Simulated scan of single mutants.
Amino acid sequence: MKHLTCAAVALTLATCATLAAPVAAETLKISSYLPPKHAFTLAVEAWGQELSQKTNGDITVEVFPAGQLGPVNRQFDLVTAGAADAAIVLHSATPGRFAMSELAGLPLSHPAAGDLSTISSERLTALAPDYLADEHAGTKIIWMAVTPPLKINLAKVNPDSLEALKGLRIRSAGQVFQSVLETLGASPLPVPPAEVAEGLAKGIVDGAMFPFEADMAFDLGPELDYSLEPGVASATFAFVMSEKTYDGLSPETRAVIDAMSGPARGAAFGAEWDKGENAGRAYLGENDVTIVTLSEAEQDKLQGMVAPIIDAQIAAVGKDNPDAQAFYDAYTQ
Rank of each mutant, 00 (worst) to 15 (best):
L189A: 10
A208N: 06
S227R: 03
G57P: 11
E198W: 01
E213K: 00
F40V: 13
T253C: 01
A316W: 05
L69K: 05
A214R: 03
F210V: 11
G248L: 01
A46R: 07
P193V: 02
G280F: 10
L284K: 05
G174I: 05
A235I: 14
T12F: 14
A83H: 13
A113K: 13
A312T: 06
N73S: 15
M216K: 12
L294D: 12
R265N: 02
T125H: 03
A217C: 08
G248N: 09
L168G: 12
D320A: 13
Q333H: 15
D329K: 12
L106R: 03
L132E: 12
R265W: 13
E195M: 09
R97G: 07
S227C: 07
A133N: 14
A155V: 02
A14Y: 11
H3V: 08
T245F: 04
V9E: 14
V23G: 03
C16G: 14
S117M: 10
F327M: 04
Y33N: 12
A128V: 01
D219G: 00
I141C: 01
T332F: 04
L181R: 00
T15M: 14
A145D: 10
A7Y: 09
Y33F: 15
G138I: 10
T290S: 13
A264Q: 10
P192N: 10
I30A: 11
A99W: 04
A315K: 08
K275F: 12
S179K: 11
L154N: 02
Y226F: 15
A145N: 10
A326S: 12
H3E: 14
G67C: 13
L224W: 07
G276D: 08
N73R: 09
E62S: 13
T139F: 06
H136F: 15
N73D: 15
V191S: 04
Q325F: 04
E26G: 05
Q333L: 07
I88D: 11
K244Y: 01
P263Y: 07
A81V: 09
K244R: 05
H3N: 11
A87F: 06
T18I: 13
G114P: 07
T332E: 01
H91I: 07
V289D: 09
G114C: 05
L51M: 01
V61M: 07
T80W: 11
Y131Q: 08
A264P: 00
I204Y: 13
A217V: 04
D300H: 09
T118G: 01
A238C: 08
W143D: 00
G70S: 09
M209K: 08
A324T: 08
L124N: 00
I141H: 00
G262Q: 03
Q75T: 05
G57R: 09
G270F: 11
K54Q: 15
A14E: 02
A24I: 02
E45Y: 06
Y246H: 02
G231V: 04
V191D: 06
G203M: 04
G207V: 07
V232F: 12
D320I: 01
A10S: 13
F269N: 03
G207P: 12
